[in-house]
């Protein structure tokens, strides 16, 4: 006999774990199994263009780590993202500090102002920077017009620093927001106590403000580092030779070179790298930072 409608609702209400079934099932099928599949493919043997056979070989990993090109690409990727991350924190901190300390009542409005152009238009923004930094771009034609240079120079574009700039544009609000939230929760009296106990402005910053911002810094790193490591549209559009990132290599191997075993091995390495870097950051900054 079917339970009455009310009976069914009560039955469901008592069994809250049922709520987990849709999401865990979905992710099991479309996320965890594919990840296992990815790892599985990474041990296969590559024959030729889009041809590979099942195997349990480490040769794809060996090839990645013994090839000077691929390891360079990986290190290059970490370097570019690291520089972007550092600059983001350096640029984001004063902004977050300004909002938290001086204009807290309009904090929402300022953050909104930063978010509006950033929450949408991913490719448009890369395109916009191309138009500014490119050889036929605004910057060059401006410099020519005012007479600083004689003809357009290809120096602003197709290099790793262009990636850094575009990445900063991409993520700045998402760095400012967690820093702002951290700074907001520091009571003013802590700064005053530090001053009162003899600390100068700089000492207060180093000994009080910065350590108490750890949760914000860690959150910002979580938010920016992971997706930025797997970036391939930005380097493809503005990166050039010095801005070749592991994302480009994976895309190329997977779709053009048809070397799935190598591409999947590189993906596994990328995944591991991002987890390791996040792990190191957690280690340095302290896990308790996340739960405060």
């Amino acid at each position: 006999m079917l339970p009455s409608r009310k009976g069914l609702l009560t039955w469901l209400g008592r069994r809250r774990w049922i709520n987990w079934i849709p999401s865990t099932t979905y992710l099991l099928l479309l996320f965890y199994i594919p990840i296992a599949m990815l790892m599985y493919y990474s041990f296969w043997r590559y024959l030729k263009l889009f041809r590979f056979e099942p195997a349990l070989t480490l040769e794809n990993y060996l090839r990645f780590f013994t090839s000077p090109i691929y390891t360079r690409v990986l290190l290059n990727t970490i370097f570019i993202v690291g520089v972007a991350m550092a600059l983001l924190l350096i640029v984001g901190f004063p902004i977050a500090y300004f909002i938290a300390r001086y204009v807290r009542s309009s904090a929402d409005r300022i953050i909104l102002l930063m978010l509006i152009p950033v929450e949408i238009n991913y490719l448009i923004r890369i395109f916009a920077w191309r138009t500014i930094l490119g050889e036929n771009g605004i910057l060059n034609s401006f410099l020519v017009a005012v007479g600083v240079i004689e003809k357009p120079l290809p120096i602003f574009f197709y290099n790793w620093f262009a990636i850094v700039i575009v990445t900063m544009h991409e993520w700045l609000p998402y760095v400012v927001i967690p820093l702002y939230i951290s700074l907001r929760s520091i009571p003013r009296s802590l700064y005053e106590a530090a001053h009162d106990l003899g600390a100068s402005r700089l000492q207060t910053f180093l000994k009080i403000t910065l350590p108490l911002c750890k949760p914000g810094i860690l959150t910002a790193i979580f938010i920016v580092f992971i997706p930025a490591l797997g970036e391939f549209a930005i380097p493809a559009l503005v990166g050039g030779k010095s801005g070749y990132m592991i994302g480009n290599m994976i895309e190329n191997q997977l779709l053009a070179a048809g070397n799935w075993p190598l591409a999947t091995a590189a993906s596994v390495i990328l995944l591991a790298t991002s987890l390791i870097i996040v792990g190191i950051m957690v280690k340095i900054l302290g896990m308790e930072a996340l739960y405060r």
């Binding site: 009571p187 009296s189 802590l190 106590a193 530090a194 009080i208 350590p211 750890k214």
Partner: peptide, 9 residues
């Protein structure tokens, strides 16, 4: 201080 302002870290 009124809230003591102990440094939490």
């Amino acid at each position: 201080f009124q809230d003591l302002a102990l440094f939490p870290h």
